[in-house]
Simulated assay, not measured.
Amino acid sequence: MTPRPHVLLSVAVSVDGYIDDASPQRLKLSNAADFDRVDQLRAESDAILIGAETLRRDNPRLLVNSADRRSARVAAGKPEYPLKIAVSARGDLDPELRFWQHGGDKLVYTTHAGAAKLGDRLAGLAQVVPLGVDIDLGALLDDLGRRGVARLMVEGGTRIHTQFLAADLADELQLAVAPIIVGHAAAPRFLGPAAYPERRMGLAEVSQIGDVALLRYLPRQSGDAAHDC
């Protein structure tokens, strides 16, 4: 059986667990050094995945910004940019979004119903891959493994991160905590309610990047058991 990719979840959050505020403009939680760290993670990845809601809200290009890192990828025999992946159950994706206009190859994982909407809409922009009546993330990872993707970086948003962690499909979580308090009830959080695995994650690393704290967790590796005081 072809191995599934290593799945890395990457997210920046406020101290109170939000990934954005409730304003129309995107809240920049990371600092310049942390944005550069994320660019390095992208350069090390074979593919980068984002959910439809985040795609519509943030309209990102999702690129490796460093020319040196792109050159290093090419020198190593890789495409200049990682494969870019969008996930949309309903297929409500605008072909004018910046995501489609920049970078290399793109995939969209969707349902049979979503594929019926996207086939013509994204013709020439992305390959549309229907996964069935619903989107099964395990089937998605199996398909990526068959495509030669060994390292997948997941950049959100809430629903996508929730689904990967609830399904126990994440190998690594890099959580950048910014010294900001959002406090908006309507703002999106890192995770939503779900039936998550009932165990402690392994804490692999804690580091400081300017005023940002980076926590690296291994979700499938149990941490030390809690002790009552």
Rank of each mutant, 00 (worst) to 15 (best):
P179H: 15
D171K: 01
G157R: 05
G148K: 05
Q127S: 14
G124V: 12
V149F: 12
M153P: 01
A150H: 15
G132L: 03
G157M: 03
I135T: 02
V177P: 01
V154I: 11
A123K: 15
E172K: 06
A178V: 11
L125D: 12
L140E: 02
G132Y: 08
D143L: 03
P130D: 03
L169M: 07
V128G: 06
L141A: 05
Q127C: 06
G145M: 09
I135C: 02
A167K: 07
V177N: 08
M153N: 13
R151N: 10
G124P: 10
L173Y: 10
G156S: 05
L137E: 03
F164A: 05
P179M: 14
E155R: 06
G124Y: 09
D143H: 13
L140M: 15
G138S: 15
P179V: 09
G138N: 14
Q127A: 14
V177I: 15
Q127H: 14
H161P: 00
R151G: 06
L141F: 08
D168T: 10
A139Q: 15
V128Y: 09
L175E: 07
L152C: 02
R151F: 02
V129N: 13
P130K: 04
E172G: 03
I135Q: 05
L169Y: 01
A170K: 04
A167P: 03
D134L: 05
M153T: 06
R159Q: 14
I160S: 00
G132S: 08
A166Q: 08
L173G: 02
L175Y: 12
A123R: 15
R121E: 15
V129H: 10
A166D: 12
M153Y: 13
R147V: 00
D136Q: 10
L165K: 11
G132F: 09
V154P: 01
P130V: 00
A170W: 05
D143Y: 01
D171S: 01
I160W: 01
R159M: 08
G138I: 08
R159T: 11
L173R: 01
R159G: 07
A126R: 03
L152H: 05
V177F: 03
L131M: 12
E155A: 01
R121Q: 15
A167E: 14
A170G: 04
A150M: 12
G138A: 12
